Amino acid sequence: MELYTAMRHFADSWGLLAMTLFFIGVLVFTFRPGAKASANEAAQIPLKED
């Protein structure tokens, strides 16, 4: 029962902070300048050999 309580406290504080920072990092990575060009280039990779 003590392990559950400790993990619950961790998830409520540091776990939430880690997930929030990860989400913000994904948003910054997605909407950074130049992301559209690299995404379009990556989208064309399967079609290059045709």
Rank of each mutant, 00 (worst) to 15 (best):
1 M>H: 09
1 M>Q: 11
2 E>Q: 06
2 E>H: 05
2 E>R: 06
2 E>I: 01
3 L>N: 08
3 L>E: 10
3 L>D: 14
3 L>F: 03
3 L>H: 01
5 T>D: 12
6 A>K: 00
6 A>E: 11
6 A>Y: 13
6 A>R: 10
8 R>S: 12
8 R>D: 09
8 R>H: 09
8 R>G: 03
9 H>M: 11
9 H>L: 14
9 H>R: 12
10 F>M: 13
10 F>N: 07
11 A>Y: 08
12 D>N: 13
12 D>I: 06
12 D>A: 14
12 D>F: 07
14 W>N: 07
16 L>E: 05
17 L>Q: 02
17 L>R: 04
18 A>W: 02
18 A>G: 04
18 A>L: 08
19 M>T: 06
20 T>M: 03
20 T>E: 00
21 L>N: 02
21 L>F: 05
22 F>C: 06
22 F>W: 06
22 F>N: 03
23 F>S: 14
23 F>P: 02
24 I>A: 05
24 I>G: 01
25 G>K: 00
25 G>H: 00
26 V>C: 10
27 L>S: 01
28 V>A: 12
28 V>H: 04
28 V>C: 07
29 F>Y: 14
29 F>W: 13
30 T>D: 09
30 T>P: 01
30 T>E: 13
30 T>A: 15
30 T>G: 15
31 F>V: 05
32 R>Q: 12
32 R>G: 01
32 R>L: 04
33 P>V: 03
33 P>Q: 00
33 P>F: 01
33 P>A: 05
33 P>T: 03
33 P>M: 04
33 P>G: 04
34 G>V: 07
35 A>C: 08
35 A>S: 15
36 K>H: 00
37 A>S: 13
37 A>L: 13
37 A>V: 12
38 S>I: 07
38 S>E: 06
40 N>K: 11
40 N>Y: 10
40 N>I: 09
41 E>G: 14
41 E>V: 07
41 E>M: 10
41 E>F: 09
42 A>I: 05
43 A>H: 09
43 A>W: 07
43 A>V: 07
44 Q>G: 15
44 Q>C: 12
44 Q>P: 03
44 Q>A: 14
45 I>C: 10
45 I>P: 02
46 P>C: 13
46 P>A: 13
50 D>K: 11
50 D>F: 14
50 D>P: 05
